[in-house]
Amino acid sequence: MAKARIKVPEVVKRGAVFEVRLLIRHPMETGFRYNNVGQKIPKNIVHTVRCVYNGAEVFHAELFPGIAANPYFSFFTTAEASGELECVWTDDTGVTMSERVALTVSE
């Protein structure tokens, strides 16, 4: 079961600005809710998201409970050569997950 989806264009021109869309599956529990027996549901949100392209950071976000469940981001970047985009995120339980996508750069 994929925990995230990354969308990039199939082919990008060298140096051209393109959009990356990232959707992570996560409940983003705020820590403000109570369960049906009145106990507080512990806070568990993805607090850091980092996307790296061929070893260079292209996107970095620090998140707080104000981000909706199943966090979605769209950002822009450029690429000089074909390679792999890797997004890594960590939640409050200490779990780190990642997803990769290949990108083809044309002349």
């Binding site: 996107f59 981000i67 979605y72 950002f75």
Partner: peptide, 26 residues
């Protein structure tokens, strides 16, 4: 919101365009 800070994004010249989209809670 009970936590007034919603998000912090870091960008650089590589981005080419300073634009971010997301979905927030209010």
């Amino acid at each position: 919101n009970p936590r007034p800070v919603i998000a912090r994004f870091s960008l650089g010249p590589r981005a080419g365009r300073a634009e971010v989209h997301t979905r927030i809670r209010l």
